[in-house]
Design a protein around this nucleic acid. Structure first.
Lengths: 152, 152
DNA sequence: CCTGAAATGTAGCTTAGGCTACATTCTACA
DNA sequence: TGTAGAATGTAGCCTAAGCTACATTTCAGG
């Protein structure tokens, strides 16, 4: 074989494998991120409803660290997606679908935090990192976490 | 006591704690996501440079599962942020900062995958989920993972 | 050496998520 | 009972990341 031959940007065909696998992995990680925000909102609204009996845009905004206008806009999206209902000036409530999603998210959050703690992550970091990690934990991985925690 | 009294959306003060902690947690998870894309690009470019001696927009786009125009736009951002250099029609290369980032990302990816495998996550799910999870793993958590893997 | 096809680049559109500024609605209380 | 001030809602702007459509450049083969 001759030299390495690496300076022909425009030769027609790529010498590399197509790797649809890798592309779909990235794609999956990307689209998981899209649902993450909705999951956060739904979980928070559920918490507020439980703790305080109501969920108001201003509280939601403060908890999430965004401007109230941002929260209101996202609440509109929750409504469009059938996860929440809200009438002007009357607070936000969850639909059945919203409640179900909230329950799943909450359960998953607990498992992720517990797993992080189980492998030795300090509490603060576990809570903090779980917030981001949980949205990327598939059913398969979640099941494995649960098994591990049950001392599999 | 009388009724639950939960229908006054506009009373001035919230009865709930401020929870700046939770807000900052969400905020952190959110901004981590912003760097995630750049990390993916940098790692992929590094891989392509190593495996093939060059990294071309079309290959990058195919691997990431996006249109080539999207890849080119993001490469522009990498350049603006000082992570990559590229001259028109000449392929993409990493700066020192880009190489350093790529190395860190690659190492972190390995640790995350290994940890998932260690707790019993099947290989395919581990690889797939790690792609999303890794961007939310803090230094603290990463260190804990490494310790756990070294049989702490 | 020419030319067609592939790669690259550019332009313009869309959506999501964020913001500030302003307008409106409600309620606690003076 | 009126009203100040908080909460809510609306409008308009920005950036990132995606897309399609079109223009340009390069190179391999005839």
């Amino acid at each position: 074989m001759s030299g390495v031959m690496v300076e022909h940007p425009l030769r027609p065909a790529s010498p590399l494998p197509e790797e649809p696998t890798q592309a779909s992995r990235f794609g999956k990680a990307r689209s998981a991120q899209s649902g993450a925000l909705l999951e956060d909102y739904v979980e928070l609204i559920s918490d507020l409803l439980t703790d305080a009996g109501e969920a108001r845009p201003t509280d939601i905004a403060r908890r999430l660290g965004v401007a109230h206008a941002t929260a209101i806009k996202t609440i509109g999206r929750l409504k469009r997606e059938g996860l929440a209902v809200a009438k002007p000036y009357r607070g936000v409530f969850l639909t059945e679908a919203g409640e179900r999603l909230a329950a799943r998210v909450r359960a998953r959050h607990r498992v992720v935090v517990d797993l992080l703690l189980a492998v030795g992550v300090p509490f603060e970091a576990a809570e903090s990192d779980a917030e981001g990690i949980e949205h990327h934990v598939s059913e398969t991985t979640l099941a494995a976490f649960a098994r591990f925690l049950a001392q599999g």
